[in-house]
Design a protein around this nucleic acid. Structure first.
Lengths: 142, 142
DNA sequence: TTTCTATTGAAACCGATTTTCAATTCCAAC
DNA sequence: GTTGGAATTGAAAATCGGTTTCAATAGAAA
């Protein structure tokens, strides 16, 4: 079993909350960490099924929610209505190709401070934002 | 009947597409135009019902879709998953209070050009974007 | 006023996700 | 180890905006 660090972080979280360590949770975390990019619940389900044939959709959904609460995954919602999960890392937004589905992360300090300025202008206490750019990637323009 | 300009724009659109002018369509357009801000289908339904008791949800949904096609309404989707409609006007993004639901429009040239620059950097042909700031408005911070 | 087609409204359906609930599994105490 | 009780699981049903279906109705052209 790889990803010892994350697996033990999960164990600590479960123990701390009186929850149980199960094969399913371990397997789903493993699949999620192995995936590159922004994986969907369905993709996790399909992959985990190859090694644990009995796991149900429900358990994948529930476990991904749990991993989010434990800080081991971040949920993302784009315009197709399908929830995707990322491995948490520093703040960023996304550029999404509407043809091939490619997702690129970007970070822009200037936009971030412009957002703070706009929130301040309207007296808002800014909690979060959603910023997505949709278009056609270089490959899909050919 | 108020909003003669929009009503005749609707009539022109219907005629041009071989569609029919109905009381329901007229009434729904009227309610939509009277509303301030970002109205939901449900709110339109509730309001139109006060004068046209027989109208169904389905017709409201269908008619709002039609008004969007005719350029008389614009659809917006925020994080609560409920479609809202605006009267079309120049490009803008939104600041949304997660306590009271207040929606404020903003426009920022600097962010727009930063977006163009980011898209160019990754070779993207930018088609649209989604930019929403979520927080607590001044009133809700008290 | 006939006729043809578009429209309507109720009800069924959609699809991603959540909830329900009985059966199972974990795990701590014996 | 066994036991017992709470947490977990998976299948099926429910959810929730919104859309589709379909028979009945209503525009509007002849």
């Amino acid at each position: 079993m790889a990803h010892e660090l994350e697996q033990s972080a999960l164990s600590r979280y479960l123990e701390k909350h009186g929850l149980k360590h199960t094969k399913q949770r371990e397997a789903i975390l493993e699949v999620f960490l192995e995936a590159t990019g922004h994986i969907t619940s369905e993709a996790i389900y399909e992959t985990v099924r190859t090694t644990h044939r009995h796991i149900g959709f429900t358990t994948v959904y529930r476990t991904m929610k749990l991993l989010c609460e434990a800080g081991l995954a971040h949920e993302r919602h784009f315009d197709d209505g399908i929830t995707r999960y990322e491995i948490p890392h520093e703040h960023h937004d996304h550029l999404i190709c509407t043809r091939c589905g490619k997702i690129i992360e970007f970070e822009c300090r200037m936009i971030e401070s412009a957002q703070d300025e706009i929130a301040a202008r309207y007296g808002f206490d800014l909690l979060r934002h959603r910023h997505e750019l949709y278009g056609h990637c270089a490959d899909c323009q050919k």
